[in-house]
Design a protein around this nucleic acid. Structure first.
Lengths: 338, 338
DNA sequence: TTTAGCACTCTCGATGCATGAGTGCTAAAA
DNA sequence: TTTTAGCACTCATGCATCGAGAGTGCTAAA
């Protein structure tokens, strides 16, 4: 559909726009790149590219600006001949290393590193809690009639919750309850446990064992998680980008909404292996219509354990962003598997 | 210094500016309030107020705008004859009630309620972790050579941390270590424990008890907390306020910096009882120079346990804000003491 | 097929001008 | 002595105009 020369020009235009954030004109291209073509020729090519929907003009007599389709072409090109600037990645990785020792902070640290190096928004989130595997569950009595439930998951992050017991339970009872829960449920994912709980409830009725009833009850309540964690870093740099200004409010709202962000990450990263890129209107949510998203999943024990990525303006530096997200994902995967 | 009429005019001007966010002129005042004075008289009064530093003019022929000193006067007036609109507070309190059941989410819920009702930034933070009282400490082995430490505090929030043990410890050893730690340290504040640890370290050397050595080591590491929690809600509404636009970047940066915010809350709320108000340049930090802060502390068991408040533009609705912060603080205090 | 040349379009910044809101001052009224 | 009416003055704002500059599309020549 496009000959090689046309592709090169398109690539150059997208690249220029990413760097300058100004509509790029025909003369600029001839000066900056050595195609050995006159501006007039470039103009002809540009007209073609506009016709095909890769470029757009903000107004007559302005230069051209990439459309989402233009970016898409650019990104697809990148993945071919892109090995990323090693020198840069070096510093990025060494910064990531700092987060390794602290399993708690691994995700947050990665998100922060990502945002600091890209100046976009850094994101990290473990998979929907339903898929995490329960490693251990512990119960302590707390205050008069509360129970503190601590869930250790295989994926690293601990979750805790304080729930109301309704009555005072002796340490011994608690221990027996937690022993029972551990024996029954550890090693299963939260989703599986939910299923088992339902079965358990019918069996329990037959047994009429008050201890088990209590245990099941506690477990049920402990598994109703709050929104779920997500780490979002780099807000201030991101919000200061000249690209939005007008829509700041709306965008800030979307970013602040953790449910929204989690859903987004989940939808995008769910099944794909490497980093995937969503450009502008390719995004499922309209709040994101002039933002782009680069996400990758990380794994643990062969299973997808969560996702990590960046959000930037559509004219983001995809080359770097992709390299960074990929590196970060590999890094986390590796850190988790030690 | 100011006669009663002058004070009333000043009050009216500040109030008008808070409502309209426009420099207020003499005619506007005569129309809106019934002082039965001509614009000319109001102008004279305004000139006096400007001379005293309560008002300022953005430029000749603009109306007057309150200075920080003007706001200060206004706020001091408020505290005299202000009981707040009960109808509004009613809905606020009922919204707060929803957060009561969940001790985990109490602070976050309050911050969110605060921000939703004020449209400013809602803040909540427990006191510097040094002052929290350790209720219980629990250890589990996790993975090969990690230990998950769970600290239950009297104040409600649980803290957890995963630390590297350096070697595999049997459940039995762990239990003995945690028994020892609980026996020695529960009931003390984190600061006190740090002190005790130092003493312990010298004693331990004498005893040469490898178990105690290990215990002390673990405890030391577990007590080095990350930044500390702070809940900040309502970013998007706040950032959308017309007052900043230009300084968004700087302000967003300050807000995102948790260390900064914690320090701010601590400095301000530290010792005072009721809600305290810092207006514009009264703030210790220059990033906050055209923001105002309304903070109050909440208590638990008679001790100050943390602070809660809102941040808004200097022209914020102080009357409402103060009432809300006060109510929220009382609410939390009450919820914690049940 | 490429390119030079040219007319055309549109943005952007500067300039000038009228308008209106608001002030300060002065002198008269209360 | 205090209040007010009147008036001259200031300044931001909006609007229209204008020229410069950047960039385009088209045509005709290379």
């Amino acid at each position: 559909m496009l000959n090689e020369r046309t592709e090169k020009v398109l690539f150059a235009i997208v690249e220029s726009f990413i760097n300058t954030n100004e509509p790029v004109g025909s003369r600029f291209i001839t000066k900056t790149y050595s195609f050995n073509l006159s501006p007039a020729t470039i103009r002809n090519i540009m007209a073609d590219l506009e016709e095909f929907g890769f470029l757009a003009q903000p107004h007559t007599s302005a230069g051209r600006v990439p459309t989402d389709r233009g970016y898409r072409f650019y990104v697809d090109c990148l993945s071919r001949y892109h090995e990323a600037e090693d020198a840069f990645l070096e510093s990025f990785i060494s910064r990531l290393e700092a987060t390794r020792e602290d399993l708690n902070g691994l995700l947050e640290g990665s998100a922060r590193t990502l945002s600091e190096h890209s100046r976009y928004l850094g994101l990290a989130a473990p998979m929907k809690s339903g898929r995490t595997t329960l490693n251990r569950i512990e119960l302590f009595s707390y205050r008069a009639d509360y129970i503190a439930v601590v869930l250790l998951t295989d994926e690293g992050p601990i979750k805790h919750k304080i729930i109301r017991a309704g009555q005072r339970l002796s340490p011994k009872t608690l221990r027996r309850i937690s022993d029972y829960l551990n024996q029954e449920f550890s090693g299963y994912t939260v989703d599986e446990i939910r299923l088992k709980l339902i079965k358990e409830m019918s069996r329990e009725k037959a047994l009429c064992d008050i201890l088990i009833t209590k245990a099941v009850e506690i477990c049920r309540e402990a598994l109703t998680f709050p929104p779920g964690e997500i780490y979002v870093c780099g807000f201030s740099d991101f919000i200061g980008l000249p690209d939005f200004s007008s829509r700041i409010r709306e965008i800030a709202g979307a970013i602040e909404d953790k449910h929204f962000m989690l859903k987004l990450l989940e939808q995008v990263g769910a099944e794909v292996e490497g980093p995937s890129v969503l450009i502008g209107s390719e995004n499922p949510a309209k709040e994101m219509k002039d933002l782009s998203l680069v996400v990758s999943t990380y794994k643990q024990g062969g299973k997808i354990a969560g996702s990590i990525g960046v959000i930037g303006p559509t004219r983001m530096d995809y080359s770097r962003a992709i390299a960074m997200v990929q590196t970060a994902a590999r890094f986390i995967t590796e850190a988790l598997s030690r």
